[in-house]
Design a protein around this nucleic acid. Structure first.
Length: 448
DNA sequence: GCTTTCCTACCGTCTCCCTG
DNA sequence: CAGGGAGACGGTAGGAAAGC
């Protein structure tokens, strides 16, 4: 606890000399304050929770945090910290009724085995051999030697263990998902899984993706290194590349909102305009604060010609009409126009198409061909991440997005837009379910 | 108890997006 | 256009993995 060394006067006050300042009522208040500051799921040993106690929050009246802490130490010395058989039996009854509840989850016979860490895999492999070679060595000596050996292991060999670990980890995650499905009653955080995942911001999506890529190249990079490097990269990311992630975020948001009962608030024409120009402006005028940026955007909107404003107003009207549609209607149409979840390759393509287009100077055919070749030549372990994403998409589709997609009527209107404006790499199937994405592609087209 | 690595949870802070 | 909401981070503790 900080403050102990800094506040000798407090300590002196709380020392035995000042003990008589504590009345019984004070002590009861202290215990009540401590109770109020316990974590909501207090399941750690009392020593752990005690060490985490924020005594400044416990402090009350004239009693400082340090004084409270010392008093607690004094009181707790008088309290039994073991349990009687009577208490244990009560607990045991609970345990027998529900043996795998809460912390026992991992003891469940069906609970998947955690993957061996790279070091452990190495250790298990070598131990037997070393034990034979050095029978005089104790197990402790062996672990010390092997840990040294592991540190000295060439990168290439270490990678093999890391890859094995990653493979097993994927399997573990699959099995864990299955376990969760099979035992929904045992999952503590059922609350979490019931609520559809909140949509992520473009920066967050980008960061998650780039972090994985970064760690693949530099698996030993620290979190801080990743953060620093990616932070810089994001701030320098081109508008075009950012758009790619903005699209993704919009898709997620749409899926999220499509699955909730909350009616979507119609977006104003000015808002569409701001949303579109903000990023560009931010790069051009990095010195501007968010509020200054917003002010400037408002001015730009006011200065916009009526013709251009009309374009945004048309988009506003389209979005409004869409938001006014009853959710039930969409569900009705779903049978006719199902939005199947994306394949791993499609998700991967979406994430890299911007880079490929840049490399091939917007020659979409060449970019698509190159992407196809890259995907086909990609090793399975490289594809795993995308396969996993596809699996997640499938799950989200089944669980959280029962109202996805738009009506056939809307779809035919959108098809007109597709025919005229949308880049060929984007499939009509995506567009039928992502009208907002069209809007964004229109933006790219008009900019280009 | 001893090894290494990974994961999870927690909290305060920061950053970004979007709403009213 | 100010501020709310939410997710990212760092730092850290604790637990789990195998086997003797």
């Amino acid at each position: 606890m900080n403050g102990e060394a800094d506040c000798p006067t407090d300590l002196e006050m709380a020392a035995p000399k000042g003990q008589d300042r504590w009345s019984q009522e004070d002590m009861l208040t202290l215990l009540e304050c401590m109770k109020n500051n316990l974590p909501s799921n207090d399941s750690s040993k009392f020593k752990t929770t005690e060490s985490h106690m924020d005594w400044e929050k416990v402090a009350f009246k004239d009693f400082s945090g340090d004084m409270c802490k010392l008093k607690w130490v004094e009181i707790s010395n008088e309290v039994r910290k073991f349990r009687t058989l009577t208490e244990l039996i009560l607990d045991a009854q609970e345990h027998v009724k529900n043996p795998y509840k809460g912390k026992k989850l991992k003891k469940h016979p069906d609970f998947p085995k955690k993957p061996l860490t790279p070091y452990f895999r190495f250790f298990m492999e070598k131990r037997a051999k070393y034990a034979k070679l050095h029978p005089e060595m104790s197990n402790l000596d062996l672990t010390k030697i092997l840990s040294k050996k592991y540190k000295e292991l060439p990168e290439k060999k270490k990678m093999k263990y890391i890859q094995d670990f990653q493979r097993e980890k994927q399997e573990f995650e699959r099995n864990l998902a299955r376990f969760r499905e099979d035992h929904p009653d045992l999952i503590q955080n059922a609350k979490k899984s019931d609520i559809p995942e909140k949509p992520k911001t473009p920066q967050q999506l980008w960061y998650t993706h780039e972090k994985k890529v970064y760690l693949k190249v530099r698996p030993d990079a620290t979190t801080k290194e990743v953060k620093d490097s990616l932070g810089k990269q994001w701030s320098q990311l081109s508008d075009k590349k950012r758009l790619k992630w903005i699209h993704k975020a919009l898709e997620q948001r749409k899926e999220y909102e499509g699955g909730s009962e909350k009616p979507k608030r119609p977006v104003s024409a000015m808002f569409i305009f701001s949303e579109e120009k903000r990023r560009q402006l931010q790069e051009e005028r990095p010195e501007l604060s968010e509020s200054e940026l917003t002010r400037l955007l408002a001015r730009m909107w006011n200065d916009l010609s009526e013709k251009k404003k009309a374009k945004y107003k048309a988009r506003e009207a389209a979005l409004k009409a869409q938001s006014e549609r009853k959710p039930g209607g969409d569900r009705e149409e779903r049978g006719k126009l199902p939005e199947s979840p994306k394949r791993a390759e499609e998700i991967w393509q979406q994430s890299v198409i911007g880079d490929y287009l840049a490399r091939f100077k917007n020659d979409r055919v060449k970019a698509l061909k190159a992407m196809e070749m890259t995907w086909n030549n990609m090793e399975k372990k490289e594809k795993l991440m995308w396969i996993k994403k596809a699996a997640e998409d499938q799950k989200r589709y089944e669980v959280t997005n029962p109202k996805g997609g738009i009506s056939r009527d809307q779809s035919s209107k959108l098809q007109i837009c597709v025919d005229f404006c949308v880049p060929s790499g984007i499939s009509a199937r995506h567009l039928t379910s992502r009208p907002k994405m069209i809007a964004n592609h229109l933006v790219i087209q008009s900019r280009n």
